[in-house]
């Protein structure tokens, strides 16, 4: 199998995740897109670990997973707070800046 397979796949997922971050209005959706990005990165790490034979990539992938979990937790807690305060989590409605 070619190494580029994994890497291209990860790149595709990454790009899609970026699109999601930019384009999505719902905060939760943005978080989900961020998850996509993170997963793409993890895939990259594992692929490189496979390529080089060092196990460190997988270790890092595990770390990424753990951090992602923590991040989602906190993020969703924040989203909840915002929702409580503003009754909306549409990101463009949360901006109070004029112009």
């Amino acid at each position: 199998m070619l190494a580029v397979n994994f890497l291209l796949l990860a790149a595709a997922l990454f790009a899609i995740g970026v699109y999601g971050v930019i384009a999505r209005r719902n905060a939760v959706m943005v978080l989900m897109s961020i998850e996509l990005i993170l997963n793409a990165v993890s895939l990259n790490l594992v692929a490189f670990s496979l390529m080089t034979g060092a196990i460190d990539g997988q270790v890092f992938a595990l770390y990424v997973i753990a951090i992602a979990a923590a991040e989602v937790g906190v993020g969703l807690a924040m989203v909840l707070m915002i929702y409580r305060n503003r009754k909306t989590i549409a990101l463009d409605e949360l901006s109070e800046m004029k112009g």
Binding site: V18, Y19, I22, A23, R24, N26, D92
Partner: peptide, 10 residues
């Protein structure tokens, strides 16, 4: 709708 205004930029 779940896309914000500038989605095309993405």
């Amino acid at each position: 709708g779940l896309n914000n205004k500038g989605w095309a930029l993405g």
